[in-house]
Nucleic acid binder design. Structure first.
Lengths: 221, 221
DNA sequence: AATTATTTTTAGGTTTGTCTAAATTATTAT
DNA sequence: ATAATAATTTAGACAAACCTAAAAATAATT
């Protein structure tokens, strides 16, 4: 078990997340996600490639190898366990935990994480509802459910927009709905399959069937 | 409030510790304590000096300024709170906590430390018996007590040897006593003021008055 | 006091992770 | 298909934190 730098860990983690939507990750997307210049990304990808953590071919983007994926899942496990700790034990709010966990996740002591996991009672999801990988690296992939199929009252978070046309995005913008917005169905109207929803900021909006079918969510705790 | 690198924090912390015994700290001592080449120490001291954290004059060694001391105490506070957490909440043993806390201490979120302190119930000492500075940076300096004056049964840790002559060191070596050894007085003999002590490794030794007066300890929890 | 030994600093290099600007490759549009 | 545009890589630099070897300053010894 070699040790990795913070930078390397952040790359692996970010590639993992980006791979949830695109099979292979482009240099520019990684650069945007990390807030780093594309040229720097190329440098690091070469390095990670030489270490066998990502497979990378010039101009074709990158993807994690099996060891790279394992490592990334380990980092995500640490991140989410700390988020849970901050929220449940220290009383941090939902929004605050991420930033602090970004630092804590790099403390790489195997026993620490095992003991922390045990201490927290082996939680299954972090405060945002994201699944926490277990000690073996098994991660329960949460299924996404369209707003149209989301039961009333169930707390959820917007994860994806099906149709990203300007027309759809305009409507979402008006209703203050974006990726990450917490959302809840207040009432469904069977007549036209439209619904009333409540979002983060206590906003309430009316959403048509057409729109609701294009808003994907995952459950949040 | 500026942010400091891990390296800078380690320098400040180490200078603080070394200053407990020598008013001003030499380049070589710092190098030895940090496991870094003396040349590198010089580089960093210039940098810390420019930042106003240490006062440094070439060839004369260094000492912390007031801001430097404050910062160092902050790092020690973090370190010891994490040690307490690891020991009390996660069930780490006395010997294991230091290494992990060395990493955790660099997570620099003010609120995290305040909340952690509160969560732990504002502990006064870490698992080694060292005092934990409070949120204002106030640190209760523990007084040292010679073994001769240590009450029976009281748990203590050897902190200093008064007379460091080869004759004394030879005896201590034979009895397996060094700085950091946990020690406890089992029985005192009023006749010659000698005593029976128990150390870490369940060793038991007989110690004369002369020797006991040269072994200084601090209480440990 | 002069020489020797030790400590500290300077000089010059290395690695990691970043940058900008220029060159190259891929993609898109005409 | 070719030109224009966008994405990516190469080249050359830089800061942080370290290193070794040589020079300089201080301390110790004769």
């Amino acid at each position: 078990m070699v040790n990795f730098s913070h930078a390397e860990e952040n790359y692996l983690k970010t590639i993992y997340h980006l791979q949830q939507t695109t099979e292979t990750v482009s240099t520019n997307d990684l650069a945007a996600a990390l807030g780093t210049a594309p040229a720097s990304i190329t440098d690091m990808l070469k390095k990670l490639s030489k270490k066998g953590l990502v497979s990378y071919k010039a101009y074709y983007g990158c993807s994690l190898t099996t060891p790279g994926t394992d490592k990334a899942i380990g980092i995500i496990r640490r991140h989410r366990l700390w988020e849970y700790f901050l929220s449940q034990k220290l009383g941090f709010s939902w929004e605050e935990v991420h930033e602090v966990a970004e630092e804590l996740e790099h403390v790489s002591n195997e026993k620490l994480i095992l003991k922390l996991d045990e201490y927290l009672g082996f939680p299954r999801t972090d405060p945002h509802g994201d699944p926490i990988p277990d000690a073996k690296g098994k991660i329960v992939q949460q299924q996404q459910i369209s707003l149209a199929n989301l039961p009333e009252k169930k707390a959820a978070v917007v994860t994806q927009i099906g149709n990203q046309s300007p027309e759809v995005l305009e409507m979402l913008d008006e209703k203050n709905i974006t990726i990450g917005t917490r959302i809840q169905v207040i009432k469904k109207y069977p007549f036209d399959e439209s619904m009333e929803v409540k979002t983060d900021n206590r906003h309430q909006s009316h959403i048509t069937r057409e729109l609701s079918q294009n808003i994907f969510t995952k459950s949040s705790s």
